Simulated scan of single mutants.
Amino acid sequence: MKTNDLIGLLATGVAPVDSRTVTRRFGAALPLGIVGALLIMSLFFGIRPDIRALMVSPVFWAKIAFPFCIALAALASIVRLGRPGQRVGYGWLAIGLPFVVVMVVAAGVLWEVQPDERVSLLLGKTWKICAFNILLLSVPTAVASFWALKSLAPTRLRLAGAVCGLLGSAMAAVVYSLHCPEMSPAFWSVWYTLGMLLPAAIGAWLGPRILRW
C-alpha cells in the first residue's frame, strides 16, 4: 500500500473536533471542584464571622483578586496545553504577574513599618497552617481539572499537571480567603504563594502518571 493510500484510509470517516469540547469539559468540571472546596471549607474551617463588614474593604478584594487572577491565567494556559501543538505564549506572563505584583506590594508594606514589626506581618497568626489548608482545599478543583484535561490531548504532561495543580490551588486560595484572618500582603506573598505552588509541584509529579494517553 502506498503512503498516500494509507493516509487516505486513516483519514476516512474522521469528523472535525468540536471546538467547544474544551469549554464544555472545564465548564462542567470547575463548578464541581469549587463546590467541593466550599464544602470542605464549611466543614473544617468555616467562613469569617465578619465577612459582611469585609465586603467594603479594598484589601479584602485584593486578597481575593490575587489568586483569582492566577486561576484565570492558569485556566487559559491549561486549555491551550490540552491541544497538541499550541503554545501557552503569554500565559506564563499572566500567571507570574500576580505573584510579582503581590511581592512588590509586600516589599512596600514591609519597608514602611518598623523592623521589629516585619516578622509579625510575614508570619501573621496562621503561617503554620495556611499553605496546608490551601493544599487541602485544592484537591476537588485539581481532581476536576485533571479529569477534564485527560479527555483532551495534552502532550506536555508534566507541565499540564503542574498547571492543573496551580488552577486547583488558586481557586482554593480564593475560597480560603473567605475564612483566612490574615489581611497583610506580606503574609499572602509568602504563605498564599507557597499554598499555591505546593499543589502545582504535586501536579507536575502526577501529570505523566495520570494524563498519559
Rank of each mutant, 00 (worst) to 15 (best):
K2R: 15
K2Q: 15
T3P: 08
N4A: 15
D5Y: 15
D5G: 08
G8L: 12
G8Y: 09
L9T: 14
L9R: 12
A11T: 14
T12R: 15
G13Q: 06
G13S: 09
A15Q: 15
V22C: 13
T23H: 15
R25C: 05
R25M: 07
P31V: 07
P31F: 10
L32G: 07
G33Y: 03
V35T: 00
G36K: 02
G36M: 05
L38Y: 01
M41E: 09
S42A: 13
L43R: 10
F44S: 01
G46L: 07
I47G: 00
R48Y: 04
D50V: 05
R52K: 12
R52H: 13
M55R: 07
M55D: 09
V56M: 08
S57W: 12
S57I: 12
S57G: 05
P58N: 01
V59R: 03
A62S: 14
I64N: 09
I64M: 14
F66V: 03
F68M: 13
C69Q: 14
A74R: 05
L75G: 00
A76M: 08
A76Y: 04
S77V: 00
I78D: 11
L81F: 08
L81V: 05
L81C: 01
R83L: 07
P84L: 00
Q86L: 11
R87S: 14
V88Y: 00
L93S: 15
I95E: 00
V100F: 01
V100D: 01
V100A: 13
V100P: 00
V100R: 08
V102A: 00
V102L: 02
M103Q: 12
V104P: 04
A107G: 04
G108T: 11
V109N: 11
W111G: 11
V113W: 05
E117H: 03
E117A: 11
R118C: 04
V119G: 06
S120M: 15
L121M: 14
L122T: 05
L123C: 02
L123I: 12
T126G: 04
T126A: 08
W127D: 11
K128S: 12
K128C: 03
K128R: 13
I129W: 10
I129E: 10
C130G: 04
C130S: 09
F132R: 07
F132H: 10
L135V: 08
P140V: 06
P140E: 03
T141G: 00
T141E: 05
S145C: 11
F146I: 06
L149H: 13
K150G: 08
P154D: 10
L157H: 09
L157G: 09
A160R: 03
C164S: 06
A173D: 02
A173H: 02
V174H: 07
V174D: 12
S177L: 11
L178A: 14
L178C: 02
C180L: 02
E182W: 10
M183D: 12
A186M: 00
W188N: 01
S189V: 04
V190H: 00
W191N: 01
G195D: 04
L197M: 12
L197T: 08
P199T: 15
A201D: 05
A204E: 09
A204T: 13
A204L: 14
W205S: 04
L206W: 06
L206H: 03
P208Y: 05
P208M: 10
R209A: 10
R209W: 08
L211W: 12
R212M: 08
W213I: 07
W213L: 12
